[in-house]
């Protein structure tokens, strides 16, 4: 039976493709983004239906499925394009096979349905798997990208490095901060490293503990760590928590911290015009104050 149905479908692929294209075309409005051009949509549809037919002919999985799903992801099309398309294919094909048969009883219908499902199911499965697999891949890449952003080190000048921290610090990030800090201080040969916590929303005991440990570790490898960007409300909560930050230098702003760092490294900013204010302005712009 299955072979007979398959022969009908393959012998009449032109008609079925035509019916399928007509139906899928009507799905475009309202279902998919209008930014998709008609030409691209038609070309992709043609490719889609070719993929379906070659998969049926070859009995199951093929490389073209993989390529096709990758293409859809690159285009940014929704998963529903795949599921809708195959749904339509199933309906059109079943209708067509039935229309080509003389006697149609319920066993016959059920056989047709079974056959068509058998062709379509592996395609759905593979396309959906490829599709979601690619998304997982993208998510994991973004995770790596986010991790790289989570504890950046900026070597602003010889021997002075800044680590600006923005956003919530969880234990995983706290560990990363410590690793990057030590590795970076050694790599950039930094005498002073400024940790800027202006962008950290809450400094609780866990965060404070990790910062203290990081500063202590930096001290052990012979450099100085200055904690800067302590907002007034953060300063008060740290005091309320009873945390002693007295052991290492802190400054309210990056600007003050930078000035201190220059002093430690025996340097100062000299304005060639001799105007004191413009130094201040330069430092202001550095800090965005």
């Amino acid at each position: 039976m299955d072979g007979k149905f398959k022969k009908i479908v393959i012998d009449n692929s032109d008609t079925i493709v035509h019916m399928w294209l007509d139906e899928v075309d009507s799905l475009k409005d309202g279902n998919y983004t209008s930014s998709i051009s008609d030409e691209l949509f038609e070309n992709t549809n043609r490719e889609f239906v070719n993929v379906i037919f070659s998969s049926i002919q070859k009995q199951g999985a093929s490389i073209s499925l993989e390529e096709f799903s990758e293409k859809l992801i690159n285009l940014g099309w929704p998963l529903s394009y795949i599921t809708d398309g195959l749904q339509v294919f199933r309906r059109v094909t079943v209708d067509y096979i039935l229309s080509q048969s003389d006697q149609v009883d319920s066993t016959y219908i059920s056989n047709v349905l079974k056959s068509v499902d058998m062709w379509v199911e592996p395609i759905i499965r593979q396309l959906v798997n490829e599709y979601s697999g690619s998304w997982e891949h993208i998510v994991s890449l973004q995770r790596v990208a986010l991790q790289e952003l989570s504890a950046p080190l900026i070597p602003v000048m010889d021997s002075i490095t800044v680590m600006p921290l923005i956003g919530t610090i969880d234990t995983e990030r706290a560990k990363l901060i410590m690793e990057n800090l030590l590795e970076g201080v050694i790599r950039h040969n930094a005498e002073v490293v400024l940790i800027d916590i202006t962008g950290v929303p809450v400094v609780d005991t866990m965060v404070a503990h990790h910062i203290i440990q990081a500063a202590e570790a930096v001290r052990l490898i012979g450099s100085t760590c200055i904690l800067v960007g302590i907002r007034p409300e953060i300063a008060q909560t740290i005091v309320n928590l009873g945390i002693d930050l007295g052991k290492f230098p802190t400054k309210s702003s990056l600007r003050k911290g930078f000035t201190a760092a220059l002093e430690i490294t025996n340097r100062k900013v000299v304005d060639l015009d001799g105007k004191e204010e413009s130094i201040g302005r330069m430092l202001d712009s550095l800090n965005g104050e």
Binding site: V202, V203, D204, P232, E233, Q236, T237, N240, L241
Partner: peptide, 17 residues
């Protein structure tokens, strides 16, 4: 105010952690 908001958020953080 901002300072009390920070105190409250920190207290929650401690209890939740």
């Amino acid at each position: 105010g901002t300072v009390d908001q920070a105190r409250i958020a920190t207290a929650i953080s401690e209890l939740a952690r």
